[in-house]
């Protein structure tokens, strides 16, 4: 017999299991606010949000791709390529650019990211390469193209307007954070409430069953990689505004941060399972961890170690959670 308190305990237990990333985040916030008086200040929290926003955007696309059982290793390089192309489009002619308006430049950057994603999608669903291999190739190709285009030098002298997405605010809210919040909401809608999102999970769970149900896999899967490329480019435009020049070496290692955030958020790398709110929590958790460690004067080397441990522990906890 189960009694009422039993059921309540069971309910609380299952809620705790489902919301474990969120609970971990809250504990971490509590810990840092006790250890450092500066942690809970508005400025610092805004700082965390701004610094997480570009990884936040990349992780949204990554969640969709990982739900299919795939992976996109090229996001960091695609980010670099997109901002270099956008930078060259927007930079004044005397600095070697095309002198186009900032909106045109942004669109060109986004198109570049989408194109790289389309190539990924074609390699994977057209030529049948594994996502790991295809995007590993693109990781190198996009980086190479970015270096060739810029001769390995940062694109400087960008117009002030070109940096707006990463540097300015509206009504006190940074554009980057607003964009992240808006696109994450859209991403959640796509994952849970559209055919694209449901097909993504179904591909990750059993692609053959989906194909035999009469769904053309290729176009849908390609669309997901296009989205991932597009979001990497969007993240790039934010990143561009923050560092104020377009470096071909930007975004190295971003793919690992994004993948870690998605996994902390409860997605399975085997596919079929992913949660957009979980991913957002994962990104924030990593941001809080970095920020808190900095406030406590922990060296960057130790930060790397701690983040690695967190990723491993998150996956172990998740295995316990889904067992």
């Amino acid at each position: 017999m189960t009694t009422v308190p039993d059921k309540v305990a069971e309910g609380v237990g299952s809620w705790l299991q489902r919301s474990m990333p969120l609970v971990a985040l809250m504990l971490l916030v509590l810990l840092f606010s006790l250890l450092s008086p500066r942690f809970l200040s508005i400025d610092n929290l805004a700082n965390i949000a701004v610094q997480s926003s570009h990884i936040g955007l990349i992780a949204i696309g990554m969640t969709l791709v990982i739900a299919t059982g795939g992976i996109d290793l090229s996001v960091g390089s695609v980010l670099a390529l997109s901002i270099c192309v956008a930078g060259l489009a927007m930079a004044p002619a005397d600095a070697g650019g095309a002198g186009l308006s900032h909106v045109t430049g942004w669109c060109i950057g986004l198109a570049t990211g989408a194109l790289a994603g389309a190539v990924n999608g074609w390699l994977i669903s057209g030529l049948g390469l594994s996502p790991f291999i295809a995007t590993l190739g693109m990781m190198s190709i996009a980086r190479g193209v970015a270096n060739v285009l810029t001769d390995g030098m940062p694109v400087e002298d960008l117009p002030e307007a070109a940096l707006a997405l990463g540097s300015s605010s509206i009504a006190g809210m940074p554009w980057s954070v607003l964009l992240w919040a808006g696109i994450a909401t859209l991403g959640g809608l796509v994952l849970g409430w559209t055919r694209l999102g449901r097909y993504a999970c179904a591909m990750g769970s059993n692609e053959e069953a989906l194909r035999l149900s009469g769904v053309r896999i290729g176009p849908w899967k390609t669309a997901l990689y296009v989205l991932s490329g597009l979001l990497s480019a969007a993240a790039g435009l934010i990143f561009l505004g923050r560092v104020s020049n377009a470096q071909p070496s930007a975004g190295v290692g971003f793919e690992l941060d994004a993948i870690a955030a998605v996994v902390i958020g409860g997605a399975s790398l085997m596919g079929g399972r992913g949660s957009m709110s979980g991913t957002v929590v994962g990104v924030v958790l990593m941001g809080v961890l970095r920020n808190g460690l900095v406030l406590m004067d922990v060296s960057a080397f130790w930060q790397q170690l701690v983040i690695g441990v967190v990723v491993v522990v998150a996956v172990l906890l998740d295995r316990w959670r889904s067992a």
Binding site: T194, R198, C201, L212, S213
Partner: peptide
């Protein structure tokens, strides 16, 4: 291996061949 997405809900598996009929304005 070919019929079902075992990890997904009964509802999702039942709708696998008819998802487009439940969409309006792109939303399910």
């Amino acid at each position: 291996n070919k019929g079902l997405a075992l990890g997904m809900a009964v509802r999702d598996n039942l709708a696998m061949a008819t998802l487009e009929r439940h969409a309006s304005w792109g939303l399910l």
